[in-house]
């Protein structure tokens, strides 16, 4: 990625870490919302981004970092003229569920055949245009992508 000029140049809007503690996803969400303020996202689009960031941060802190405070979640916000990316990285080495996971079976959850939890990845997938997962030996990164041009939502009026 380049931080210099041109149509496809990427600008880093935020780059920070947070301790892996329950509730800190809310802070991640608000910091990202502040970082993208100048992009003037339509309000509905911004709310979706905030939910996706919150859920991806919960996944990183809970499943990746097992809520170990010494293993922070790292969050980077990058924008070009065409798209916005939020990269959320944990320090976990275990498997991460596939981005294409099926919709949760609500009936099974209501009947007690499945845990009522596990909505995070499903919500993320429905909130952003792309969700990409990169795994290495000791970390996972979830990339949340919103396209800023060329789709209906991106042209939604405020």
């Amino acid at each position: 990625m380049s931080d210099t000029g041109g149509e496809s140049a990427h600008r880093t809007l935020a780059d920070f870490t947070l301790p892996s503690e329950p509730g800190n996803e809310r802070e991640a969400m608000e910091i990202v919302a502040g970082a993208v303020r100048d992009l003037d996202l339509p309000p509905a689009r911004l709310e979706k981004l905030k939910t996706a960031v919150s859920e991806a941060t919960i996944n990183a802190m809970e499943h990746g970092n097992k809520y170990r405070p010494e293993a922070p979640a790292a969050i980077k916000v990058v924008a070009s003229t065409k798209e916005l990316s939020v990269l959320i990285t944990d320090r976990g080495g275990g498997p991460i569920p596939a981005p294409g996971a099926e919709a949760p079976d609500l009936e099974a959850r209501l009947e007690g055949r499945e845990s009522p939890r596990g909505w995070g990845l499903f919500l993320i997938r429905n909130m952003v245009d792309e969700m990409n997962v990169t795994t290495s030996e000791d970390r996972h990164t979830i990339e949340l992508v919103l396209r800023l041009k060329g789709d209906d939502d991106a042209t939604e009026t405020v």
Partner: peptide, 10 residues
């Protein structure tokens, strides 16, 4: 959040 959704499912 997703945990809240799970609580509402409960």
């Amino acid at each position: 959040n997703s945990t809240g959704i799970a609580l509402i499912v409960g």
